[in-house]
Structures are given as structure tokens and as C-alpha cells.
Design a protein around this nucleic acid. Structure first.
Lengths: 203, 203
DNA sequence: GCAAAATACTGAACAGTGTTCATTAAGTTT
DNA sequence: AAACTTAATGAACACTGTTCAGTATTTTGC
């Protein structure tokens, strides 16, 4: 009897239907402005139905959080073609910033929003761990190649991640009001450049 | 007739009464969990009354945003005693992180939350400008003293701010799940230390 | 001192939110 | 065909920010 299998498949399809609708709405309108009722409307089901497939709104957000990491890690794959480890590091930083600017809502969910992160176990961090692991590998390679002095790889990677993350967080959350609109991009670019040079000479 | 003056004074007192109550509640319970009705209850007025003194909830948040910057800038005053400009810079970074950890909700409002920043004019950035101005002054002094090479002061300051901000943002928003709980603080400290050293040698 | 004008305040309502649950409809098993 | 299981829903609950007509209270002009 393949009925249970079909049921399971239908259930998975329904979960995908809901999540796809949620993703479209969230990424288009932001998380605040999308309600369970909105999602229910677009898939033409009752709001209560959504709760049969996802425990609550946060579980929906967390599912997207995971999708975001999968997308980001996949975009990092293009780095493999670069042979020079430092160049790869710089390009990874650029990719991180690019991802943030091109997918602001996803990035928000992944690194800034509080909502879905309230209580996460270690198992929920596989994707984030993967991305950070990639960074650590590149940093290690920079050390092996003599580009960086030998330091604790974890702390060094953390320092670099923080440095890059800072820009994107301040930029996305519109905290650069002290600069005139037109100056912001150039200043950001110059600051990123300076950060890379400082790493190159000082680490 | 001092009646208009008294009225003005009473109005200001009422604004303070509301804002104080809001601050206490917000900083204790977080912004999400405090409603206008909660605030109204604690000051024993009707919810509608609050709208006679503040346009909406965001105006309340923005008033606290300003208070936060005043507090932060006042905490930076202790830096004046340090004579070495680089030491002053490091200590400013420490003070920034300390402020964030000790006043997480205020910091959130000032640098992370989207809510009150939706549309701010240039005049609303005086306090932030002041803090960033202080940073630029110290960076300039580091350059004058020959500790840093001469670069664009704005971009350099921005780079340093981003670097420090990154830690605090990731930490406050609980994005260090890949590290075991007990390792986080040491890694953060080491990363901060490494950032300072890297600036010292590489900038 | 008293009526009229101005100000301060509030209860109730509106339109929305996330979430739950008894009830109904559909599908599966015996 | 009847009994059982599963899926979907309408309606409700307890909230939210915000508005507004109406009621107190205070100030003004006579």
C-alpha cells in the first residue's frame, strides 16, 4: 500500500507550497508586513491550515533561514576557481556583502533578526557552521602560504567575519545617516578596501 | 500671565513621565513585548492620552534612541584622560562593546532595530554624528602621531567602526551558535585583541 | 461670580495580529 | 455501507497600534 507514501509526499508538497508563498511574500514585503492570513490567502487555504504544517510563524522563518544559508553557501562555490588564498578571502568578503545587498531580507533573517533565533540547538547550526568552516579553511591557507602570521584560526576568522559583517549590518539597517546619500557607497568601498589592505599588511 | 509657561512645563513633565515609563518597560522586557496599553497602565492614564504627547510608538522609540546616544557619548568622556591616541582608540572600542553588552536594548535601538529609523532627516543624526566625530578625531590623531599611515580619515574611521560593530551585532543577535557557549567570550576577546594588533601593524 | 470657550482626557471602536479548537468535510479501512 | 481516521475550516480569544466622538476639567472674557 503506497498510500502512506503518497500522504507523506502530499504533506511535503503542502509544506513547500506554504514555504514558497511565505518566501515570496516575506522577501517582497518584509517580515513585519506579512501575516499568516496573507500567506493563507495567496495559497487559498484557511489560516488555521498553516498551523497543521508549521508549528508557528517562527518555524516558517527558520525554514527560510536555512534556505538562505544554502543559497549563500552555493554562491561561495565560485570561489573555488581562485587559486591565491588571499584573493579568495577578499572575494569571499565581496560575495558576503553582495549577498547581503542583493538579498537584504534573507540576510536580515540569517544574521540580524532576533525572531527565529530565540532558542536554537547546535544541530540547527550546520549551515552556518559550514560557511564559517569555509572561512576558516581559507584563513588557514593564508597562514600556510605565509600571507598571514600564525594565529588562532578561529579567532582570526571571527575577527575577519566581524569586520565584514559590520559594514553590511550598518548599511542594511540604515545607520550611515551621517554621510550624505551619494557619499555612502564610495566610503563603504574605500573602507572595505582599507580593511583588506590592513589585513594583508598587519595580520 | 505665567499660565502658558506652566502649561508648557506640565506638558514637558507629562512627556517625561511617559518616556520614563516607556524606557523602564522597554529596557526590562524588550520592545516587542511592551505595548502602548502597558505604558498607559503603569502611568495610570488612558492609552489615547499617550498619543496627545507622542505621535506614535516610533516617536517614543526615537526619543529613547536619542537618550541612548547621550548616554553613550557621556561614557566616552572618560577617554579624555588617556594621552596615547592609539590607546584611546582601543579603549573607545572597548567602551563601545561594554556599552552594547551592558545596555543591549538601548544599543539595539541605536544601531540595529529598523523601527525608529524608517525615515530620519539629517538633523536627527546630531548625536550619532558627534560620536562618529569623536572617532574621527582620534583616528586623525593616530595618523598625526605616525601610528597609522595617512589615509582618508572618514573611510578609516568607518572601517574601524564596522570592525568593532560587527562583533557586538553578531554577539547581541546570538549568531555565535557554532561555538560552544563557554568558548564564545574568549574567542570574542581574542578576536578584538587581534583586530587592535592588526590595526596597529597594518594601518 | 458665572457662562462660554479652550484644553485635557477617556471609552469605545476599528482593523489588524498570532494562535487555538470544536466542528465539518473528505478519504481510508474494515 | 458503516466505522474510523485524517484534513481543513470558521469562529473565537486575547492581543496589538491607532483614531475619534464625547466627557470632564480648566481658563478666559464679561
Amino acid at each position: 500500500m503506497g498510500i502512506t507514501e503518497r500522504k507523506e509526499r502530499e504533506r511535503e508538497e503542502m509544506r513547500k507550497l506554504i514555504l514558497d508563498a511565505a518566501q515570496t511574500l516575506f522577501l517582497a514585503n518584509g517580515y513585519e508586513k506579512v501575516s499568516i492570513r496573507n500567506i493563507a490567502d495567496t495559497i487559498e487555504y484557511s489560516p488555521a491550515t498553516i498551523y497543521l504544517y508549521y508549528k508557528d510563524k517562527n518555524e516558517l522563518l527558520y525554514a527560510l533561514h536555512q534556505r538562505g544559508f544554502v543559497k549563500m553557501v552555493s554562491e561561495f562555490q565560485s570561489l573555488r576557481s581562485l587559486s591565491d588564498p588571499f584573493e579568495r578571502l577578499v572575494e569571499m568578503g565581496r560575495a558576503y556583502i553582495r549577498f547581503a545587498v542583493e538579498n537584504p531580507e534573507l540576510f536580515d533573517l540569517m544574521f540580524i533578526m532576533t525572531a527565529p533565533m530565540d532558542k536554537l540547538d547546535k544541530e540547527d547550526w550546520v549551515e552556518g557552521d559550514q560557511a564559517f568552516g569555509l572561512l576558516m579553511t581559507i584563513v588557514q591557507e593564508c597562514m600556510d602560504a605565509g600571507i598571514f602570521k600564525k594565529h588562532d584560526v578561529q579567532a582570526t576568522s571571527m575577527m575577519i567575519w566581524s569586520g565584514i559583517h559590520g559594514y553590511t549590518a550598518l548599511f542594511l539597517r540604515k545607520r550611515l545617516g551621517m554621510f550624505p546619500e551619494c557619499d555612502r557607497q564610495p566610503i563603504m568601498d574605500e573602507a572595505f578596501d582599507l580593511f583588506c589592505k590592513t589585513l594583508r599588511h598587519g595580520l
